[in-house]
Design a protein around this nucleic acid. Structure first.
Lengths: 232, 232
DNA sequence: TAAGATTTGTGCGTATGTATA
DNA sequence: TTATACATACGCACAAATCTT
């Protein structure tokens, strides 16, 4: 077997043994090349394989850093999907799974503080991080208050932008509940994880500046890829 | 932008313009490096990116070949999902999306040659090739004839194996209809393709040696990744 | 069949650019 | 400002597999 591949396997083993921990730097290419007794280019080829696998990433002038694969999803007063992901230099994408207009259930009406005779708009979406589906959201919104919500959302694919167009310039969390669930078969396929693998589920209400509820929603995160960072 | 990246983009453009066709060889690294006026290593880096994307692959001593990414799925008298994929040295996997027992529709009853009062078992599955979901199947089976079908299928995850256990040692296609559809949002997410991207849809009946229908089913294939190879 | 040419794979060395510490 | 660290690019040499004569 080639030298660079042996070194790759050796480094990978060290990484899986947590010899180098997520967020930490590896020794420099110069040090590694001396340690393994090879040219720097040879080490670079080994490292490239680990970068391709997303285990490492490099910063020019700084060093090579062990990737913490779990995405740190910030949950605070203002939770913004796309912004959260762009802030960490990843690429966000939202796709619509389905939508529905129907009468509110008791719980939905209570949480949205609307009459239970009123209709709600339900939207289910998949959120992707770097093209990997990892977040599923089910939103319930008053259809009476925002009759054009879906039409706009379909084009914008962003809650923040849609609400802005509808005149809601800011909104924030009233509360957030975090629970754990197991993925069922449909969720496993949609979220690209295995059946029964753990999901983080958040249930929350977003309200406007007048404290009026806008949406009552639930979001599922793939536990293996995402960690929730709670803020004040 | 770096030279190797510009060359990568140039080659990628040529490939998408079908200047080099699937199965064909590219000019050798030596020729390419002279053509672009760079060192051979520089060309190799450009090519490596295209190899990583699965667009090219190389054979030592032979050359660099344009990959035909589309999987050749054989449709003939006997169609066997797992075997089809194993035969081409890929890894098959089946996951269950959902199942349902209900009364047969008129069309289902007619195609299964059963009384329309009878119940049918509906199973929706996702078929993966090398872990990439690319095939969705919706099967309708007589629940009266095979009351234990789902219990067995759930463990076996194979129609062939399930039927064998149920005493049906062989089965074959009565007919197959091929049509084209566009992926809707749910299909796009399940099959990891874009909305409106083309799907190949087959509608067919599998029957046993006594010509009695076993299943009336529909299968969707992602057109970008799969081509159907019709056999006699 | 065998020898030689071609083509990709691996490895080292050197030099310079660019970003960070 | 200086030193360090990663990024890019060229050149040389040889190995390994394949193709051609």
């Amino acid at each position: 077997m080639s030298i660079y591949y042996q070194i790759y396997e050796s480094l990978k083993k060290d990484l899986s043994n947590n010899l180098y921990k997520p967020g930490e730097k590896l020794p420099s290419e110069k040090v590694l090349s001396k340690r393994f007794g090879v040219n720097r280019h040879t080490i670079r080829r080994s490292l490239q394989l680990l970068k391709n696998e997303g285990i490492l990433f490099s910063k020019r002038g700084s060093g090579i850093i062990v990737h913490d694969n779990r995405f740190k999803y910030k949950i605070g007063k203002r939770v913004r999907f796309s912004q959260n992901i762009l802030n960490e230099n990843y690429v966000p994408e939202t796709t619509i799974l389905r939508s529905e207009i129907r009468k509110a259930s008791k719980i939905e009406a209570k949480n949205l503080e609307i009459n239970s005779k009123h209709e709600i708009l339900l939207i289910e979406t998949i959120g992707k991080i770097n093209n990997v589906p990892s977040i599923k959201t089910k939103r319930v919104i008053s259809n009476k208050r925002f009759p054009d919500f879906f039409d706009i959302f379909q084009k914008q694919l962003s809650i923040t932008k849609t609400l802005k167009i509808l005149g809601v310039n800011d909104f924030f969390r009233k509360n957030t509940l975090v629970t754990a669930e197991q993925a069922d078969s449909i969720q496993a396929n949609l979220l690209h994880c295995k059946i029964n693998s753990p999901l983080l589920k958040t249930t929350y209400i977003n309200q406007d500046l007048n404290l009026i509820p806008i949406e009552y929603s639930q979001t599922w995160f793939v536990g293996e890829r995402i960690q929730l960072a709670l803020e004040n």
